[in-house]
Simulated scan of single mutants.
Amino acid sequence: MVAAADAQNYAQKLGISHDMAVQELGWDDDTDDDLRADIEETVGGDLLDEDSDEVIDVVLLWWRDGDGDLVDALMDAIVSLSDDGFVWVLTPKTGHPGHVEPSEIAESAPTAGLTQTSAINLGDWAGSRLVQPKARVPKR
């Protein structure tokens, strides 16, 4: 049952729980299939693709050096994001092909209207969690 414990671990690390709508952007042959399967098992369904018109709870954005403009990709990623939703930018770790410097994410997030809240390790990938700043409630 080690696999089941690990599966729960990936989704838990990412803050993903049952019945969440998870959209996957940037999938390619190099993405981590175990991580993807763990998330699908946790949410109880398939990951949504870029053509989905649902309100999204979590966006998984697989991003590599050379994929283009990260700000543009983040702007596209948040179009259908719920108010409490968040984006995980998943990049290859240092020493792996396509590695992205953390500073690129740190500089791109605010331009796209996002704030970086945490970073985690996921096997050969590193994850950066980005959220939309909470709207300030006017005082009465």
Rank of each mutant, 00 (worst) to 15 (best):
L70M: 06
H96K: 04
D69R: 07
D69Y: 14
A73L: 12
V87W: 12
S82H: 10
T94G: 06
D83L: 14
V100A: 03
M75K: 13
D83H: 14
G68L: 09
R64A: 10
V55K: 12
V89D: 06
V58I: 11
T91C: 08
M75F: 13
A77I: 00
S82D: 11
V89S: 04
D84H: 13
V87L: 10
I78T: 06
D83S: 15
W62E: 03
D69Q: 14
R64W: 05
L90K: 00
G68Y: 05
L61C: 04
V55F: 11
G66P: 03
A73C: 09
V71H: 13
T94S: 13
W62Q: 03
E101V: 01
S80C: 08
D84V: 10
P97N: 12
L74H: 03
T91H: 08
G85A: 10
G85W: 10
T94M: 15
D69A: 13
I78W: 07
D84P: 05
D69N: 15
V79T: 05
L74S: 10
E101Q: 10
F86E: 12
V89I: 02
I78S: 09
G68F: 09
D65N: 01
L74I: 08
G98E: 02
W62F: 09
P97E: 11
E101C: 07
A73K: 03
D57T: 08
P97W: 10
T91L: 08
H99M: 12
H99I: 02
L81G: 05
G85E: 10
D83E: 15
G68H: 05
W88G: 01
I78V: 09
E54I: 07
H96G: 06
D76R: 14
P97K: 06
D53N: 12
L70G: 02
D69H: 14
F86I: 02
G95C: 14
D67A: 07
L81P: 00
S80Q: 09
W62L: 06
E101G: 08
T91A: 11
D57P: 03
G98S: 00
I78D: 07
M75W: 13
V100Q: 04
R64C: 03
W63V: 00
G95M: 15
G68P: 01
W63L: 02
L90A: 01
G98K: 01
G66H: 01
K93L: 11
D84I: 10
D83P: 13
H96C: 07
D84W: 15
V100C: 01
E54N: 13
L81Y: 08
A73G: 09
D57H: 13
D65P: 00
E54R: 14
G98W: 05
V100R: 00
R64M: 11
I78P: 03
L74N: 04
W88T: 00
G95Q: 09
V58Y: 11
G66R: 01
G66M: 04
V59M: 08
V59G: 04
V79F: 07
A73V: 06
L61F: 11
